[in-house]
Design a protein around this nucleic acid. Structure first.
Lengths: 233, 233
DNA sequence: CACGTTAATATGTGCATGCATATTATCTTA
DNA sequence: TAAGATAATATGCATGCACATATTAACGTG
């Protein structure tokens, strides 16, 4: 017995994990049910339930009513990645953050976004182009559209002091959003802004957030060369 | 009252969410404690706890003993992204998956990986180079090192029928791993394999998995042009 | 034998309660 | 008054219990 610490729910989870990793319970195999495990560990079923629920959340086991719990066949690599506000990301690197607003105007939504980002027909959106710096070196380039129906206050903001990102999280919190990551080649313009050779592969992120059915903002971020997004699983 | 459905924990979570989104409770503000909320909703404290715990997990509120619960100031965008096995990813697109093994040999670990991937001194690792196809078009290019101490069975596998990825999840489950995403330019070789013009920006992922302290495998995946990794928040 | 009904069962969830633990505020005491 | 001991308090967790719900197996019935 590795004698899982105490019989706290985390201790029980640890022991269950050990059995899965050491292949005592093989992938696809059904494991004893909650009541039996509770008896074995000498704890309440609720406690076993808590442990199993946690394992199910991380995808390691699959649970079905009546059918029981079984070890996942193809445990999906489920990673939670935390996308911080750029200022915090830069400061976490021990560097000084600053940003500069390159453009700010009201314009119709570009047709490219009509599908994913539906604003009132014919209404202008606020367009912002920002460059983020870490220790005076370009860190990321940002193009953003803000739906003024969702964040009317944005109309009067210059966004020179506080970044749109930070202002929005406080003023127009989103309920959900779509996120995608991809690679782009630096074009002429990006190359100048980000201090990268033309054609350099750049890591890029696109994000749309909504408050209910109302779209709030569309952002496209292009990071300077060498950027890596990291996480643990 | 939007009268959150029932007073199930999800219903209560929904109501709490509504108050946060509608700014009844402002960012940084302390919210009533569990006991009060339980009384208000006419449910047990446990149930409120469940709802609050869930909100804390997704980063929307911050909880501290004695100090109480407060709405997060900078709710981090926390996204859970599921990284599927490539075969499943391809098949989910409605395409036919196949892969071809380009290289397979035993070699010393390249010095570049000595830091992050520590195998027995001087021991060879299994090196695999694989190309993944979707409908006979290149989908992703994979370079993998397998620590034979962690997965001795790999020595006798050809990996022509089952991919190393799938074999490993079943034969040498990992306990944790590091994951990173970035962009690379297609070099001459990659350009040929992935059917991309030289220099094209390609989305790439690097992953190391361990079983406890024992490293299992190091993978580098480079996706064909146009690949996007998506998720929701 | 096919098919729909019913019962059995494992997980999901809620409740009341008690104790544990971290953190803050307050009260002593030198 | 400053520093340390102590109490108060909010969340964290474990327990025992009851009932809900999904799913499977068994059972009838035509």
């Amino acid at each position: 017995m590795t004698t899982a610490d105490t019989n706290s729910w985390t201790g029980i989870r640890a022991e269950l994990l050990r059995r899965i990793h050491s292949r005592v319970w093989q992938p696809g195999e059904q494991i004893p049910h909650e009541a039996d495990l509770a008896e074995e560990f000498g704890c309440a079923r609720t406690t076993v339930n808590r442990a199993l629920r946690d394992l199910a959340e991380s995808g390691l086991v699959v649970r079905k009513r009546r059918a029981g719990t079984r070890v996942a066949l193809n445990p999906p690599q489920r990673a939670t990645l935390t996308i911080p506000i750029i200022r915090e990301e830069v400061e976490a690197l021990g560097k000084t953050y600053r940003h500069s607003l390159l453009e700010r105007d009201f314009r119709p939504l570009p047709p490219m976004l009509h599908g994913a980002f539906q604003v009132t027909l014919g209404a202008d959106v606020l367009f912002l182009k920002t460059l983020h710096f870490a220790d005076d070196r370009p860190f990321a380039f940002e193009e953003r559209y803000i739906n003024l129906d969702a964040a009317p206050g944005a109309r009067d903001m210059t966004f020179e002091d506080v970044s749109a990102n930070e202002w929005l999280v406080h003023s127009a919190p989103y309920s959900h959003g779509d996120l995608s990551f991809f690679a782009v080649n630096a074009d002429e313009r990006m190359s100048r802004k980000l201090d990268a050779a033309p054609g350099t592969a750049l890591f890029s992120m696109e994000r749309i957030t909504w408050s209910g059915a109302l779209p709030i903002t569309h952002v496209r971020l292009v990071y300077a060369p060498g950027y890596r997004m990291r996480t643990e699983i």
